[in-house]
Design a protein around this nucleic acid. Sequence first.
DNA 1: TTGAAAGCGGTACCAG
DNA 2: CTGGTACCGCTTTCAA
Lengths: 352, 352
Amino acid sequence: MSQSDRTPRVRLVDVARAAGVSKTTVSDALNGAGRLPAATREHVQKVARALGYRPNATARLLRAGHTRLLGLAAREYVETPWVYADLAYFSQIVTATTQAALAHGYGVVLLPTYGPDDCWLDIPLDGVFVIDPVEGDPMVRDFLAAGVPVVADRRALAEVPVETREAGRWVDFDYGAAVRQVLDHLEAAGAERIAVVAGATTACFHQQSVRAYHEWCAERGREPRIACLPAPGVEHTLQAVTELLAAPAPPDALFTLVELSPPLLLDTIRRLGRSVPGDLLLVCTTEDSAACYTDPPISTLSFLPGETAQAAVDLLVDRLEGREGDPGHLFSADFRVRASSAVPERRGARRG
Amino acid sequence: MSQSDRTPRVRLVDVARAAGVSKTTVSDALNGAGRLPAATREHVQKVARALGYRPNATARLLRAGHTRLLGLAAREYVETPWVYADLAYFSQIVTATTQAALAHGYGVVLLPTYGPDDCWLDIPLDGVFVIDPVEGDPMVRDFLAAGVPVVADRRALAEVPVETREAGRWVDFDYGAAVRQVLDHLEAAGAERIAVVAGATTACFHQQSVRAYHEWCAERGREPRIACLPAPGVEHTLQAVTELLAAPAPPDALFTLVELSPPLLLDTIRRLGRSVPGDLLLVCTTEDSAACYTDPPISTLSFLPGETAQAAVDLLVDRLEGREGDPGHLFSADFRVRASSAVPERRGARRG
DNA sequence: TTGAAAGCGGTACCAG
DNA sequence: CTGGTACCGCTTTCAA
C-alpha cells in the first residue's frame, strides 16, 4: 500500500454498474467497437465521463500482449550514471529515437545503466536499442534471453548465445575507416604531425578509433601523439589540447575524437597563439552544428545520430510487427571538409 | 497477432508443470518469498533457468498496482515535435530527471507532445513531469483527471478543475525577476542600450521574460530593442544578433534569452567588429558550460535544469509514496557575472 | 510446506 | 444487439 490511493480509481465495472450494462458494453461503447445502438453508446459515454472513468493502461497492455514501449540505453559510462548531458551525440540519439518511435506509435523509456541485477527486465518493453554496449553486455544478454528484440552493434550480438540471437538486429559503423579517412585527408593537406584527442572508455568507437590511429601511424613510421581522456569534461579536454600543442615539435594538425564545443576549441587554439588552418589544421568529431558557423568553418566528422536512431527504431519495429527485413545496417561516417583543414591557402608554417 | 510470437514465451505455469509444483511455489521460489525448503527452491530455479523463464513485466505491474514509470514531456514546441535536440536546457532536464528517477527506482518515459488525442493515457505511468506546459494544457488536464500525479508550473495547475488539482505539484521560477536582475546589472555596468534576443514561443519563460523586458524599458522610458525568434536554430539566432548590432545607434549590451553556443556568439560579435566587454557587454541565458572557458568568460543566466528536475522527481515520488511534502518549489535563477559584462576595465565606447 | 483459487482491470469470444 | 465468461500472466491469501 505504498500507493496514494485515497481516491480508489473508478473501474470499468463501476461504469458498467452505474450505467446498468455489462463490462463488454462499456468497453465496446468506449472503444468504438461492436455495433451498439448510438443511444446506448452515448449513454455509457456520458456515465463514464460523469464518473471520471479512465481505463487502466497496464491492464489493457496485459491484454494486448505488447506495450508499445521501446527501451533506450547508452552504456558507454555504465559506472558513471548519465554523465552525458552535454554530449551532443547522445542528446541527438535520444531525440531522434524518440521521434522515430513516436512516428511508429511507440514510446521510449530511458533505461538505467546500473543498479540491481536484471532490474531492467522489470520494465515492460517491446524492444530495446542499446548504444555502445560493453563487452559481454549483460543488458543485451538479458533482453535477448527474455525474448525481447534488441538493436545493438554486431560485436555485441556475436557475444550472445546463438539460440537467443535471432531477435537481435544491429546498426554499425566502421570507426577505423572513418578515422583513417580523416587522417588521410590531413596528410594530403600537408600535415606531418597529427595530434589526436580521444576517449579512454569502453565504447567500441573509442577503442577502435584509437587502434586505427596507432596502426595508421605505425604504417608510416610516425610517432603517435595522442591524449586519451577517461571521461568527458570541457576542462580536461582543453587541458589535453593545451598539452598536445605545447609539445617540443608542435603538431601541425589536430583531430579531436571527443565531444567539445568547436567554437570554444577554436578560441582556445588561438589563445595558444596558433592560427587555424595556418598553423594548425583542425578536424572535430562532433554533432554540434555550431562548427559550420565559425570563422573559419570547422571540418567535422559525424556519426549521424539521427540516422542511426531512425534505423535502429525501424529495425526494431519491423521485427516486432513481423515484417521481414535486414538483419542490420552498416553506416558510413559523415566527414565534412571545411576551411579549418582545407589545403589551398595554407601558408606553410613548418617549423619541424 | 502482429507480435512476432514464433517462440510463445514460457510462462509461470509452464515452469510449474515442468517442475511438478504449483504456480505459487514457483513464484515464491523465484522471488525469495515464502518459506520453502532450500531443495524445492533450487529445483524450481533450475527448471526455470533451463526453460529460459522470464516473468512477464506487464503482468507483475498489473498485480503490483504501479508501474514505477514516470513520464517526461517538454511542451514548448508542441507542434514541432522534438526540435530541441541541441537545446542544452532540455537535454539536461532529461538527463537529470532520469538520474533522479533511477535513484528512486523509477524509469522515465519520454512522452509524445502531439499525436492522437489522449494517446499519452495509454502509457502506464505513475506520475508525470510536464515542462513548459501550454495554456490550458490538455496533457496536464488529462493526467490529473486520470488521477496521475503531475508536476508542472503553478499557472498550469491553476487552470485545472479544482477537484483534480490535489495530485498536482509545481516547480516554478520568477522569470521576470531573473530578467530584471540581469537588466539592472547591465544598467549598473553602464549600459544604455540593451538589446535582447528572445523566443516567441508558448513557453511561460519567453512570454514572461519578454514582458519583463518591455516593462523594464517602459519604466525607464527606454526604447526596447528586441528580436523574437519563433523557433530555435543557430542560423536565425546569429542573424538576429547581427541585425540588432547593425542598428543605427548600436546597442552597448546584449542579453540573449535563447540558447546559443556562447563561444560561437562571442566569435560572431567579434567578426562584426565589436569587442566584449569593451564595445558590448554580454550576458547569455544558457546551460552550456563552455561559457566560462571563453576569453573573456561569459556572464550567464541559468535556470538550473538539474535542480529543477531533481525537485520535480522528488515531489512526484513523495506524492506517490504517500509522504506528505511541499506542494511545490520556487527556484531562483542562477545569475553568474563574469568578465563579459563586468564593469571595471570597460573602455568607454559610447557613441550614442 | 504446498496448492487451489481469487483477484489485478481490461478485452474478446460466443451464446443468447 | 447484449451479457456472461474465459483469459492475459503473475501474486497473494487462505485452506488443506
